[in-house]
């Protein structure tokens, strides 16, 4: 596929790539294997096929509740951080501002300090200010973590198209708001989608901040953490992990299929 060597004498890089894929896939593939294993112990030898852990997963209100919490937080954080990121990206790419570099550096700090420090410093502040821990505090912490990522994605997208497009929108009689909707938004849309996906994924999988900043209501990673300590809770968790993996695989495949179809339709309708 990538070289013109015969398949029985592959390129060294190709062999390396295959070995690398085995390295990153192998451990992860054992998770679904054990989700079908008829034993509550995650150990060899395998004991036979079962679907009972998937049944247990569906009949596990705390886990489903944690899943719902994570989805809720993920959606809200994705939308808010993308809005914040978009406003910030517009500001730093479109306006001459004094102090721009230090301000951008400040916003990017969450990327360069260990998450545990972010988590405990927020915990200290909240407890000194007597603000009770809740899903809200987790969501706020996730917002801080996600805005820099969103901003990075959107800044590169904003830099990729010319400022004069927006000026043309204003010049043709639309105010700033309508120019945003009719010009900026459609052009940066791919970046917005990328930002939404990225920030949702980050929030959905985030454990450290949620661990320090949540109370009774758990997010899914916090629930998984607790289940890792209780072997009896583990197999249904593996089932859920496998199910989420399959779901995201289907979503991404579907999205890619739509995208390719879209591209094909575009290219045929034009000529």
């Amino acid at each position: 596929m990538n070289t013109n060597r015969p398949w029985w004498r592959p390129d060294g890089f190709y062999i390396y790539a295959v070995l690398y894929l085995i390295f990153i896939y192998l451990p992860v593939l054992f998770l679904p294997v054990f989700s079908f294993n008829n034993s509550k112990y995650i150990a060899f030898p395998l004991k036979g096929f079962t679907l009972k852990w998937y049944e247990a997963m569906i009949n596990n209100p705390p886990m489903l509740n944690a899943l719902m919490n994570s989805i809720k937080i993920g959606l809200i954080v994705a939308i808010l951080s993308t809005i914040f990121g978009l406003l910030a990206a517009k500001a730093v790419t479109r306006y001459r501002m004094p102090g721009r570099a230090p301000v951008v550096g400040f916003i990017m700090i969450p990327l360069v300090i260990p998450e545990i420090i972010l988590g405990i410093s927020l915990l200290i502040l909240l407890s000194l200010a007597d603000i009770p821990l809740s899903l809200l505090t987790v969501g706020f912490a996730h917002l801080l973590l996600c805005v820099p990522f969103s901003m990075l994605v959107l800044v590169s997208r904003m830099e990729g198209f010319d400022k004069s497009m927006e000026e043309a929108g204003l010049d043709l009689g639309e105010n700033a708001w309508m120019t945003f909707w009719r010009v900026t938004f459609p052009i940066v849309l791919p970046g917005i989608i990328a930002s939404l996906l990225l920030t949702f994924t980050i929030s959905f999988d985030e454990f450290v901040l949620a661990f320090f900043l949540s109370s009774i209501e758990q997010t899914l990673p916090v629930y998984i953490w607790s289940s890792l300590r209780f072997p009896s809770k583990l197999p249904p968790t593996l089932a859920l992990g496998a199910a989420i993996f399959m779901a995201s695989f289907i979503v991404v495949t579907f999205a890619e299929w739509i995208r390719r179809r879209g591209v094909r339709l575009d290219s045929t309708s034009g000529i």
Partner: peptide, 30 residues
Amino acid sequence: SPPNRRPVNMVFQNYAIFPHLDVRGNIAFG
């Protein structure tokens, strides 16, 4: 007066044709 309230229009150096609209959409924009 902000740019959108001025009775002038501009032809940009790089033309700034909206990439997401066709020719008709571009002309009808304003």
